[in-house]
Write a protein that binds this DNA or RNA. Sequence first.
RNA 1: GGCCUCUUAGUUCAACGGAUAGAACGGAGGUUUCCUAAACCUUAAAUACAGGUUCGAUUCCUGUAGGGGCUACCA
Length: 601
Amino acid sequence: MNLDSFIADNVAVAVGKLYGAPAPDGSIQISATRKEFEGDVTLVTFPLLRISRKSPEATAEEIGACLKASLPQIESYNVVKGFLNLKISPSYWSDALARIASDAGFGQGTPTGRTVMVEFSSPNTNKPLHLGHIRNNLLGWSVSRLLEVAGNKVIKVNLVNDRGIHICKSMLAWLRRGNGVTPQSSGVKGDHLVGDYYVEFNKMLKDETEAALRDAGIDPANATDEQKAEAQRNTECQKAAQSMLLRWEQGDPEVRALWEKMNGWVYDGFDTTYKNLGISFDKIYYESQTYLLGKSLVEEGLAKGVFYRREDGSVWCDLTSDGLDEKLLLRGDGTSVYMTQDLGTACKRHEETGFDEMIYVVGNEQNYHFQVLKLILGKLGFDWADAIYHLSYGMVELPEGKMKSREGTVVDADDLIEQMYRTAKETSLESGKLEDMAPEEQDKLFMMLGLGALKYFIIKVDPRKTMLFNPRESIDFNGNTGPFIQYTHARIKSVLRKAAEQGIEPALTGAGLLPKEIELIKIMAGFPDKIQEAAAAHSPALVANYAYNLAKEFNQYYHDVTILRESDAEVRSQRLELIATIARVLVKAMDILGIELPERM
RNA sequence: GGCCUCUUAGUUCAACGGAUAGAACGGAGGUUUCCUAAACCUUAAAUACAGGUUCGAUUCCUGUAGGGGCUACCA
């Protein structure tokens, strides 16, 4: 049991004894004592005044005295306004350190027996990954790790959008203007090459649209949106792309072969990016294989009267009673839409895995879509509809606003990783601490640091919020950053290495603890709770902030005390044990974020 | 128009309805005969506005102003 609930239970006992009535639910509020006051845990007494019928101070005083008398773990208490601050005895913290130090799997939650599926990344195959995908990927990955550490079985899946008009556009432009170029012949990464032809298509489209407008006697610069859309629809290349999509759907061997070839290039490119980011999946779904799912569900829904058919043959679900609109599920021509296949895919996945929770890591622009998805699954009678969770994250904005591919302000994922690597390299070489390190080791380190900075920067922000990313200023390596925590770890490891060289073993010797040491132990003891809290909130950001806090406290501690030079052997060994434990907790926390910690830097 | 969401130091981010709103970067100043100065210490600086609920509001409610998103027989 953790300290907070232990105290809470005893407060409940004390309240019953003192006031002869049980404390109402939620009236016992325990929190960590703020730094400026003396104590470790604090009871807020205001909610208990209804029962005590006394002033906040008197209530706090009485409960404090009662607890002090009955619990040996409480060394002292003090009352400030309505707050009862309890100071826990040092031996409790020594024991806590001993428990943490001897627990190799510290932080790993007990198995919950729950299976959670997490879908993330879900790229289109016509363009390389960009900054927005990076937030998605890092969030999906770290949430998956977080839930695993919290004791769940996690299945990471990726649903690749490998079909549709957008891929046909790349294919068409490549056929017309590519001259048979391949990633091998050009040396261009596959996903970038295909992306280049997507851009090429849009150029063709723009030229043809403007020509058409001029032919119609309209100045393209002054054309209305409707006029532009109309002209665009009728361009030759747009029609060619559409007919290519039709041929794809009919299974035309030529189109399919080209489609497979170009998608193959893209997957090779994606694999490289995923590998650089350090992420992987347990299963990859392809929309070309799932896009027909869900049609039978629509039939079922029609039979049950959940959906209805319009005169033109299209099928809809009326959600107006839920405060939403009517939602299309099947077009007049019988073809399905995104919602249809998502319904089908969800069902298929539930049949296959029996998941207890299905998390979709998708941007908040699709909030409406997932609200509807959940509602419809419920209407179809699936009791697991509530297991659907949309982990909705905010957009990544640049200083000049939203990324727009048309204006060329998209931050490419591969470029960004490369840039982070280079910045890490420069900063590291400047410090001049790595001269005796082998070049390949250095290279690994630079990548570790660059990625650490990038990942931490993105994950530390509350997923739901829109975040700002300034590529020019890059990312700092000082302060609340990944490299700060990496540096902290390297520092500890360095001391431990030197201790080992001198034959000094870390050990728990029962030597007295400094206040700062108790502070550090307190933070570490809170790790398992923090994991559970973060998992419940689906927020790796909480873990990031936790790790930063621990690292920061350590750096202050490190500055204030001597470790290797400490003359008292017992104190010295115990301090080594303490910092070794800190290093282990840091590794565990950062592992959730997908950030590696170096032995030296 | 309708629905959702956001607004905290100069900037980027924190804060289960609880104590004097925390950090970091940037600014100003300081610390290295000593285990890693990518560190540490000092200092100035913020809850968009107006009401309401509460012992207590950055947090909950209403309104105003200003961002963002959704409102496709796109995905």
